[in-house]
Design a protein around this nucleic acid. Structure first.
Lengths: 156, 156, 156, 156
DNA sequence: TTTT
DNA sequence: TTTT
């Protein structure tokens, strides 16, 4: 079908370190759990209340999967863009189940780390990463394909 | 938590007429099923393939629920903005289940009808609506609250 | 800087046929003018009012530029995703000027045609395109790179 | 017009403290300058390069304007959602000029602070704000209107 | 200059 | 299971 859009935009925090699995090709596939939350003042009691929502993310995009594997840790704040996908599976009792995930496909989706680099919290998060200062920490779906001047077309 | 975003943007088509339920207050709550789809050419066979994804929408926003109830029909194409929400329920066998929906809360979310009005398909969709030409068919979350000049601030 | 997002999402109509220019490489660069509009009821007079906003689009993305060149005509409704860019230029009097455009870079951005194919209006728009039914009319930034099954990972 | 969307999503940093002006009503209108940036590796030289883009924001939304006025400082990182608007003005030489801004209207738009509160950098940013811990720092367009349980509809 |  |  022409004219279809399926897009999710999240800003939230990782509830756990990324889970990494390998494709048959050896490429990483990364699963994230991300929390977003809303707070509001209860009309009755006047108390501040808060509700978290948990999201399951699957990163098939190779470049973004590598970034996630290397740099993201429990607690990290990220900006993330993907597509909704509901998959069907069968539980141990033979019942059909459905799980909805946010998928970052090959050449699609976006992932941005939103923690400041000199944040003490982040320091510990990246303690195993010695060469981090050489990295941009900012990755679009195709940054690895697009290694040239993005904003300087020849004819202008 | 400060600094959290939970947003879904869809452009797709209704798989069925809207389902309308009533809150205790009498306000409508509308459920939609919306399909988005992707097509691609299979690398092996060279054939064009297509895959649809189905989304469950719940509209609590009163203004948007009324619009959906009145104007949307099976097949209609819409632009829609909401938030992801996964709710837990128990099936008839006592098993815990989870369902993920896209929710348009009070004062939040957006719904836009994307079919042209003189589209034959749409004509039939709105055959019961005689006064449609008086309607805008374009509704943000708070259009009913914002009935004044939106782009003419006093001090400019 | 890590952690930056610059994204524009528009649904609107072309005010004119696309303008096509060629890069030195021969690749097309397409300029579009797109209108979005808001309507509201004036609080004072009770009259319905409407205001259009015009947007300048520049498509460097090769795949999307070809789609725009072939399929889009004045009046067509599109979904479009790009990035804001303000460029400086000098007018004939030597004054510095700034123009803000929405740019669809290589491997980035999205363009979707939202008119139904059997829409009479659209028919005329595509009268020169005989083989249109073979085309998807739905194009992401990297559809031409991603010609394989997008939603069937090996390990699942 | 029905079926129109004009949306900008930015994640970036303030280049300066917010500028606050007053409407005739006394309501604040806040102007922000926000930078987003892209980095990439130059294909020729192999060097890492970076380009910043500057955006002008105007916040008419009262709740968000107050948040911006109170909590945002130069350097703060924000998530922001608004609409594009180009306005015409006349410079001192009588020339027509156009300026494109991102506008957060009444009851529309979104603003989220993305800095962690115990970030040293942030500490100084909010040093004049003693009661900050009572504040949520997370505000949607209509949070002040929506002071009730957002995710607990009666009939569920 | 579009669309409704 | 996150964050504030």
């Amino acid at each position: 079908m022409a004219g279809s859009v399926n897009k999710v935009i999240l800003v939230g925090n990782l509830g756990a370190d990324p889970e990494v699995r390998r494709m048959q090709s050896g490429d990483p596939v990364v699963n994230l759990r991300i929390a977003t939350s809303e707070s509001w003042r209860d009309r009755q009691s006047g108390e501040r209340r808060e509700k978290s929502e948990w999201h399951s993310i699957v990163i098939f995009n190779e470049g973004l999967a590598k970034v996630a594997e290397q740099y993201l840790k429990k607690g990290a704040k990220v900006y993330l863009e993907g597509a909704l996908q509901t998959r069907k599976w069968t539980d141990q009792n033979g019942n059909e189940r459905y799980t909805t995930e946010i998928v970052l496909q090959k050449f699609r989706g976006e992932l941005q780390m939103l923690d400041s680099r000199d944040d003490g919290n982040q320091q510990s998060q990246r303690s195993t990463q010695s060469s981090y200062t050489d990295q941009s920490g900012s990755y679009g779906a195709s940054r690895d394909l697009d290694d040239e001047i993005p904003f300087a077309p020849e004819w202008r």
